[in-house]
Design a protein around this nucleic acid. Sequence first.
DNA 1: TATAATAGTTACTCAAGATAACTATTAGCT
DNA 2: AGCTAATAGTTATCTTGAGTAACTATTATA
Lengths: 142, 142
Amino acid sequence: MFPIESFRSFFHQMLMMYRPFENKLNIVLSKHQLYRAQWSIMYYLFHEGPATHVEISQYLSVEKPTVTRTISRLEELGYAEQVPGKDRREKRMQLTELGKSVYLEVRASVDEFERDILQGISEEEQLETIRIMKAIRNNILK
Amino acid sequence: MFPIESFRSFFHQMLMMYRPFENKLNIVLSKHQLYRAQWSIMYYLFHEGPATHVEISQYLSVEKPTVTRTISRLEELGYAEQVPGKDRREKRMQLTELGKSVYLEVRASVDEFERDILQGISEEEQLETIRIMKAIRNNILK
DNA sequence: TATAATAGTTACTCAAGATAACTATTAGCT
DNA sequence: AGCTAATAGTTATCTTGAGTAACTATTATA
């Protein structure tokens, strides 16, 4: 019989890494009164520029109502604002100047946290792992 | 200035892989009327044997009330049961025979899903990535 | 021009988790 | 031995993050 007892599933390892990571990330973000879902959208808008709800939804793999709620919160905080889209249905969003400066501030905390946690893992190993994580994402989404 | 625009944080890549993965995993598990949190506990009990709530809590990085709720559900389903612990406070749990057979059945679905999604990623790359994910987990938990 | 599709919102539900406060039991001092 | 600490688990309540269904408004298309 297949010795399943000794075999650790790839995805189980992913789950086991993800939970403690999320816990710690939330602690870092809470110092800036932010949550992970908000942070993910700020990250996307900072790096990719203005985007519609649908684009954000597809990128983050969440449904539209989830995007509406989270981005409303970013608007209330003054971190995101609407820009003209290609028609009147679209609601294209971008970070405000305040949003960008908050991003950079929080990003510094996140980078520090990241350095702590990647100790003992070489630059090559990190890049290799990022490459594989991207490949897995693409496999799932295709 | 540091060219932060071009730099993708390691953890952002992790988040971007995790969401679509969790979505698909939930679809696989829902065919067996299970949720991720339940599945994680079944996985642990199957591979590590009987465990207390505290052990499960520490392993999964969740608080005790979360464990109580999830394991109660597994008891209701007839998948988990109590075994005598070392004192009367402890509630040591194990999978029932039914629980074990359900585990193996679901595990077959999960393995199939996993094979699909790891296409194009070599055995060595998978093992390397598992090794690094374990190292990151250990760094966070220490 | 009537119908389709697209973008976003509203209302509601749910899973998964947290914290605080509690009971019951056991361990450790003095 | 007896009081205090610590440990294991539960209950009650709250929050985040997400989903589905049904809707409005706008645009594309047959």
